[in-house]
Amino acid sequence: MFRTLLKKELIAQLRTHRTLITLAVFFVAGLISPLLAKYTPLLLELVPDMPAEFASLIPEPTINDAVGQYLKNVSQFGVILVIVLNMGAVAVEKERGTAAMLLTKPVKPGMVILTKWLAGMVNLSVGLLLAAIGCAFYTTLLFEPFSLLNFLALNTLLLVFFGVYLSITLLASTLARTQAMAAALAFTGLALLLLLGASPRVQELMPGKLLVWGSSLVLGIEASAWWSLIAGIGIMFACIVLASVSFNREEI
């Protein structure tokens, strides 16, 4: 059952172009980050009538800028992509009636949720891999070589970061009866996390801290965010369990 459901979800990601969109967005976001970091100051210098004093204020771009751009671009585009591409995962199945067809077969509703989450994570992993390859190539070319192992660790933390939003979106999609309602719920979840992140005490637990940790790893700065990692894994686990329980109890 698990294999059949996972296979179906992975093929669905391909056939409905979700994989293609994810790969394209991540690849572009990863690729342009070091390019933007390198050439933005040059582009600014080319602006006509730019005062010489202002141009001299722009610092020489470094690898920090490349990594910073990468984290900013990939995380921002990525979160929106995760919500948009997954908000219908369960809600659309309920709306269209395919959920009823599926649940009259001997399947566990929790397994349906788990395979949807796994397929989403596989999609994100491949997308992140492409983004990382693009970014690593141009960063090495335009700046200086850096630890690929640490960059891999950064991307693993990014994956956990996206995993949190994917889980929240899947939960929203399970609780909602329509795709529109799922989108509203998922964006509310996103807003809630941002609001919570504003509190200094809770901030340490928010997934955003994972990005700071990842960036520090690449730049060789001593920092960690273990509590954020634990909280992130906890949120994922809780969302999947809640979504499974809800789907199991829901009348279709």
Partner: peptide, 21 residues
């Protein structure tokens, strides 16, 4: 969602829905 029971039942809803792809 009783898997044992569902393996002995065939169900056709009024408007059967499938994955279009």
């Amino acid at each position: 969602h009783d898997r044992h029971q569902l393996s002995n039942i065939g169900v056709l809803p009024e408007e059967p829905a499938f994955y279009g792809w």
